[in-house]
Structure formats: C-alpha cells, structure tokens
Design a protein around this nucleic acid. Structure first.
Lengths: 357, 357
DNA sequence: GCTTGTGGCGCAATCGTTTGGGTAAAATGC
DNA sequence: GCATTTTACCCAAACGATTGCGCCACAAGC
C-alpha cells in the first residue's frame, strides 16, 4: 500500500547492485536473501546479514526488474488471455476471475480480443508468444480449431476457458446440464411447442446448451424439429434476428423460447414485444448466464447462472498445473436455473395435467 | 499470419546470435539491419547483406526477445490500464479501443480492475509500475485523487480516460454537453417535473452529466431541487435503488428521469414497471452511453451515445505524446442523443404550447 | 596435527539486445 | 599517387538479475 511513498522519488529504480554496494556485500548475496524463501536463504547469508538486507530493501523500496529476471530465468510471470470480446460481459467477468487469481500468484495478464475470427486468434496468439508469456488462456476456441493443435505441437502451455474442445483441458460451465435444466423447466410449465436460439455453431457453449436441451426434451417426449433451432450471433442483434425468424415462419408460433445467451434473449424479447406478444404471458423465454441484467430487466428474465468468476479462477489454476507438467482434467462447473417472470407462468394446459389459469 | 508455421518447432526461439552465426557476420550487424528502418540501416550493412539478413530472419521466424530489448532500452512497449471493472461494458468498450490503438503501434497492454477502490487503484498502479510499463491509462480517477499527484511527482507518464480531472490530460466524452442534450429533449417534450439518477459523486462523468443537465434545465426555466438528484451506483442495482427513492418520496412523482448510465436506467425501468408505471407512457426515461442494449430493449431506451472506442483510441495517442514529452491537451468528444420509445411521447401538455396527444 | 565439514559469502558467466566506438578496405578527391 | 572520406563491418560493454562453483575461515572429529 505505502510502497509508492518508499519507492524512491528518483526516476531510476534501485537495483540489487545498489543495495549490495550500500551494504558492502556482493549482489549475489542480496539476491539470494531476497529471492529465496527463508529456509533456502539459510546457507546464503547469516541471519544478521539477511536481516540487514531485507531492511534496506524495504527502505529503498526495491523491486526486482522483471525484464532482467525474465531474461535470466526464461519465465515472464505473465499469461496471455484471448477472448472473443471483452465488451461481452460474460467474458469480461471470467477475465475478472482470471486477473484476480493470476494476481494472487503474482502473475500478470495480457488480454486481447479476437472478435471470434480465426485469423485474429492466431495473430493475437503470435503476439502473446512473441511477448514470451508463460502460458495462454483461450476463451474463444472454435469447434474445428487448428490453432490449438499447433500450439500443442509447439509445446506451448495453455488451457481453454468458457468453451471446451475434446482432448484439451478446459474450465467451463456444464452447458449440457444447463440446457437440461431449461428443458425440464419449460416442460413442467406445460410448454410443448418450443424454439431454441442456439448461438454460434462453432462455440461449444452454444452446441452443448442446445444439445442438453434438445436431448432432454426428447427424453421427456417433446418434439424439436431442425427448424426449431435457430443458430445466431450472441448479441442482442442476433437474438432479434433469430426471433424474427421464429415469428415469421409458417405454422403456430412456439409458446416458449430458450436462448443460450442473455443478450440474445433480450434482443428476442424486444422483437416479440414489437409483434404484440407479451413476454411471460403470450410467450415464455429463458436465457443463459444470468447476467446481472437479467433479474433487473423490466420483465425479469429467467436464466441459467454459470459461475463465471470461478471459471476464470479455475482456468488460472489449471494453467499453473500445465506449466508444472502436471496432468490436468477438464472441469465443468454446475449451473443453476433462476426462474423469473419471463417464464414463470404455466402456459399450455394439458388435458392430462389440467393446470388451471 | 503464417508466422506460427515458420516460428520454428523448437522450444528455444532463435536469437540474433543464431542468425549471425549462420550468416557468418556479427550479431550487432544483424541487429542494426533488422532494427532500423531501411534508411537508418544504410551504413550498417551493404544492401546485399541486409537482404540476406532479412531473408534468413523471416525464414527462421526470428522475433526479438522483448525482455532483453527492454532490459537494454529501458522501455517495455507496454502500457498499464486501470479501470473500475471490465464487466462494465462501457469501460470494456473503451479498452477495446485502447487495445486496438496500442497494438497498432506495437504496444501491449496490461489491464486491471480497481473496483473503484482508492486502495486498489494505488495497489494496481504499483503492480504495473513494478512491471516497468512505459505509461498508464487511468479509467477510474476519483474527484479527489491523490494518486495522480503522486504519479506526476514521480514523473510517471499517464493520461486519464473516461473520467477527467482538472489539471491532467484526459480523453473523455463531453459529458456536460451530453447532460444538456437530455435537458433540451425532456423540456421540449413538455416535462417539467424531473429527477436525475446521478451516479457516483466521485466520478466526473456523473458530476458533469448531472451538472450539464441541471444547468441547462435552469436556463430553460425549469426547477431542479436538491432532492431531485439521487446519487447512486452505476449498475442496474443502483438504478433500482434510486428509482425506489424517487417513487417513494412524498409529493407528485416526476414525469421524466435522466439516468447518467444505461444500466442504472434499466434498473430504474424495472422498478417503475413494478410500481405499475409504463415507461414511455407514464414516465419517460433517458440513459447515457447508448450501450448496444439500449436500442434492443423491450422498451427501447433513449440514450446519449458517447464515442467509447474513440475515447480509448485517443487516450493511447495522448499517452504516446506524453511519453515523448509533448504538450497535450485534454479532449472531450461530442455526444449524440438518440430518442427512442422510452421518452418519445410528449407528456405534459403546456397551456402555452397546446401539444395534442 | 591433519582431514573433513560447513557456514558465509564472492566471482563470473549468462540470458539476448543495443549501441558507442573502433578499424580495415574500398572509394573518392585533387 | 597520396590524403581523405565513406562503406561495411566487428568489438565489447552495458542493462539487472540468477546461479553453479569456488574459496576462505573456523569448527569438529579422530
């Protein structure tokens, strides 16, 4: 906290050699004292010397030059993080978890946006590797990615976050389970005609959530045709477009819609309303991620909460292990459904169940 | 793009010395050829040699070790960026502009969240300076900040972004003008009883938007009492709480509300609706920033658009100048009001104007 | 009294670049 | 043909930290 006051007003930071000169000992001794945990420091210097060193270092506000350290040790204590876009609150939140966990272990992070473009992913990865980061966290892996195979071939330590990929360690939400939660909920509420706003087909999040929903829906006895699944972008615009398609097609409109992303859900809500449908009344809708917005919307949005901060924190933990050469398993965190006004009402009265109102 | 293929499968990157050895020349010559722009390179090597060097460097996928370079040159080609939180879409978007502009000039950026805490701001700044960044971009400066004075005393190059502070260069939206736009709009629509959800009192964005609104409102002949201005958090929760206060107090409720932040506006919309008010009908509301959500909400939200990407880009430009010792002036970018359903209707019919419907 | 240990430290190489100062040879000037 | 400049390089010293090795002094063991 107070380190700024003591860091010295001069522009040139104090070095090991400065400390050594002032103490009349060699810089290597200073290094050993400061660098090693106290048990290793034994043998390097007498406890009296060690004390003097530590005292002066604190006084002068010494902090080792990371560039010099990296040059010597070949490790930068920095991770690279690549996400589709930080303006997507989901990724931004995961990144907060990453930053927090990295900082806790004295690592720094570079983060870059790939805009979900294959070329940019590769370019940004190159930039980060040119910076000699110790490892990468990829939050934007595509289903058919070749990049991750290349990285593995080059022995670059990395883990996946947010989206998973068979054969690579990842920290994600259990998206299949999330989809299942929604299927159960909508089925129980009496819905039988549903549609899915499925997201981008190259993202495992979209694929898994949709698959979980559709599989469980079949198990429950429901029918979900190919044309009931609309692949779309993850933002409000994408949800709007998808909703237009759902409304615009021939036949009875669905009574419920599952959107694999809150923002797409919000876009869809706008469209439905524009078509005279009251969300939560004429049509139910459920989102995913339980963004802080969902509960606060004019019509509160039902949503599946994924533990975004934990996903980020866990990714860092895993990357540390990968760097240490340990075997790591992918982790899928359990989601939780929050039912709100947008899908709370029972809709479609079934003869067998005879739900009133 | 293809650099990854050529970067060599080996784990140890190729160095200047490697190239020099293979070419039978000295590494300093290689450095000069590769490092200097072609005009400076003249004098360092014959054009034939230069050609051979460049060709081999490309073949071997040489990329200079940034740590070694930094150690020698004392510059890291990295900026530190501190924001309240990246999960705030406004700051995340500005950061996208920062990253883009920094990358264009071959700089990298570290970004950290301060959660708008004074202690964390200082701590994060310390971490970044320990990393020896070439400069800082602060997106979270508080009105009475002492940190920025300390930084200046230490001759740390930095600029402000998003929020401004007298006496320091900043890249912001012209928030005063933004507030004025809203005042004009609401006055013209016939509103006379209004309230402001003002945001955090330590943020210049909040202060300026509120001041611009309130000043113009007086000029127009309106009355805005102290209790009509509710200071609050910038998120949906904050907007919700503020709206509760507005509704809950004695006397006639306002017919229009200006929220200095879209998310707070969304929270307020929820509250109003919960109290049986139809936004856009019974009560008008205008937000700020024109987040991508605003236009897509079930009831599209009027909002003042601020050029967030440009603010970020410009901050980088300014920081470059500061580092070069040039004099830089603060820049305030012009905002633009987008009127949508949430405030489109004329409300309060004035005798003098006789607005119908 | 001699070896053997060991605590406490110094020496110097090293990481990969950059850069001021050389120095031969070639080119130019007159 | 000789002095001078230019070309095209090389040398070596940094930058700041880490780390294997070595050395000296003192203590302990026998």
């Amino acid at each position: 906290m107070g380190s700024m006051d003591t860091a010295g007003k001069g522009r040139t930071p104090v070095t090991l050699k400065d400390l050594a000169a002032e103490l009349g000992i060699h810089s290597s001794t200073v290094s050993r004292v400061l660098h090693s945990t106290s048990d290793v420091a034994r043998g390097a210097a007498s406890s009296a010397t060690a004390e003097r060193v530590r005292k002066l270092a604190a006084e002068r506000g010494y902090s080792p030059d990371p560039q010099a350290t990296s040059l010597r040790t070949r490790r930068t204590r920095a991770f690279g993080v690549i996400v589709p876009r930080l303006s997507d609150i989901v990724l931004a939140t995961m990144y907060e978890g990453v930053e927090e966990a990295a900082a806790a272990s004295n690592y720094s992070t570079f983060v870059m946006n790939s805009h979900d473009s294959i070329d940019e992913q590769r370019r940004k990865a190159d930039i980060m590797l040119a910076r000699r980061v110790d490892g990468l966290i990829l939050g934007d892996v595509h289903a058919g990615s070749t990049l991750i195979h290349d990285l593995r071939a080059r022995h670059v330590p990395f883990v996946l976050m947010n989206r998973r990929h068979e054969g690579f360690p990842s920290s994600t939400c259990d998206d299949v389970a999330g989809g299942e939660l929604v299927a159960d909920h909508l089925w129980d509420a009496g819905h039988r005609r549903v549609a899915v706003i499925a997201g981008e087909p190259y993202a495992s999040t979209a694929i898994d959530r949709t698959a979980g929903f559709s599989q469980r829906w079949s198990e429950l006895g429901g029918e979900l045709r190919k044309e009931d699944v609309i692949w779309s972008r993850f933002d409000t615009e994408g949800g709007k477009d998808a909703a237009e398609k759902i409304i615009g097609r021939p036949g009875e409109p669905p009574t419920a819609v599952f959107s694999v992303n809150d923002f797409a859900a919000i876009g869809a809500m706008g469209t439905f309303r524009a078509h005279g449908l009251t969300v939560g009344q004429d049509i139910a809708i459920v989102g995913f991620n339980d963004t802080s917005l969902a509960a606060q919307l004019p019509i509160p949005l039902s949503s599946v909460r994924s533990p975004m901060l934990d996903i980020g924190r866990r990714a860092v933990e895993m990357l540390h292990k990968v760097i240490n050469g340990e075997q790591v398993d992918s982790v899928r965190m359990t989601p939780q459904l929050f039912v709100r006004e947008s899908s709370a009402a029972a809709f479609y009265v079934l003869p067998a169940r005879s739900i009133a109102g």
